[in-house]
Simulated assay, not measured.
Amino acid sequence: MSQTILYARVSTADQTIEHQRTQAEAAGFKVDEVVADHGVSGVSTKLSERPEGNRLYDKLRGGDTLVVRWVDRLGRNYQDVTDTIREFMRRGVVIRTVINNMTFDGSTTDPTQMAVRDALIGFMAATAQAQAEATKEAQKAGIEAAKSDPRRYRGKKPSYDRAGLELVRSMLAEGAGTTAVSNATGLSRQTVLRIKGDPIGAEEALERWEA
């Protein structure tokens, strides 16, 4: 029995799996299952290298439909995206996008239709990579501009305040474990580990926001 699987990739805090599913259902897709990766870059990490994305290669069978919001959910690297789509098409999987309602079907045998399909795949994959590169360059330019004025460049705001930082330091100095410090301060274990691993950097980050 064929199935329709929605693959969602969430790389930022303002994206949600539920939003991507709602969009797909609003566009008329009847989703049987959602497979999603959180906090994974589509530029540097291939679909096959992502924890959940890799599962698609085992789950999808001929006759199944893979739905994505757009091809950039599969990746933002031209070669990776085109290889991925063609691999699934060879397996008999139909790939469909919510945006623009595009369909990529490997069962097409008409040469003209195949040429148009392959051109569209290449164009969309190239667009995804170009958008990613443009965003990266814009972010880089913004950071460099901000760095030119130390008063403006502060980086991400620390999740701890002065009292919290001092408590972490004190507990670590007394030999408390990461979990105990996390529970006592309300900070995540990752934050405690970052402070422990780079106390000077933690102090500097806080000073930038106190200035």
Results as ranks from 00 to 15, higher is better:
Glu87Gly: 02
Met102Leu: 13
Thr109Phe: 02
Phe104Ile: 05
Met114Val: 12
Ala134Glu: 13
Asn100Leu: 07
Ile85Ser: 01
Thr112Gln: 15
Arg96Val: 09
Ala119Pro: 00
Gly92Gln: 02
Ala115Gly: 08
Ile121Asn: 06
Glu133Ser: 11
Tyr78Ser: 07
Asp83His: 07
Ala128Pro: 12
Phe123His: 11
Thr97Ile: 05
Phe104Asn: 01
Thr109Asp: 13
Ala126Asp: 10
Arg86His: 08
Ala128Leu: 13
Thr97Trp: 00
Ile85Gly: 00
Gly106Asp: 04
Thr103Asn: 03
Gly92Pro: 06
Lys136Phe: 11
Arg86Met: 07
Phe104Arg: 01
Thr112Leu: 15
Met124Cys: 15
Phe88Arg: 00
Glu87Asn: 06
Arg86Pro: 02
Phe123Asn: 09
Gln79Pro: 03
Arg117Met: 15
Asn101His: 13
Gln79Met: 14
Thr127Asp: 14
Ser107Pro: 03
Thr108Trp: 00
Val98Leu: 07
Ala128Cys: 14
Gly122Trp: 05
Asp105Trp: 05
Gln113Thr: 08
Thr108Ile: 15
Ile99Lys: 13
Arg90Leu: 07
Gln131Thr: 11
Arg91Asn: 04
Lys136Tyr: 10
Asp110Pro: 05
Met124Phe: 15
Gly92Ala: 04
Asp110Gln: 11
Met102Ser: 07
Met89Tyr: 00
Thr82Asn: 03
Gln113Trp: 04
Ala115Trp: 10
Phe123Met: 15
Met124Asp: 08
Val94Gly: 01
Asn101Pro: 00
Arg96Leu: 04
Asp80Pro: 06
Gly122Asp: 12
Thr109Lys: 15
Pro111Val: 13
Arg117Glu: 08
Thr84Gly: 05
Tyr78Asp: 06
Met102Asp: 09
Glu87Tyr: 07
Thr82Cys: 07
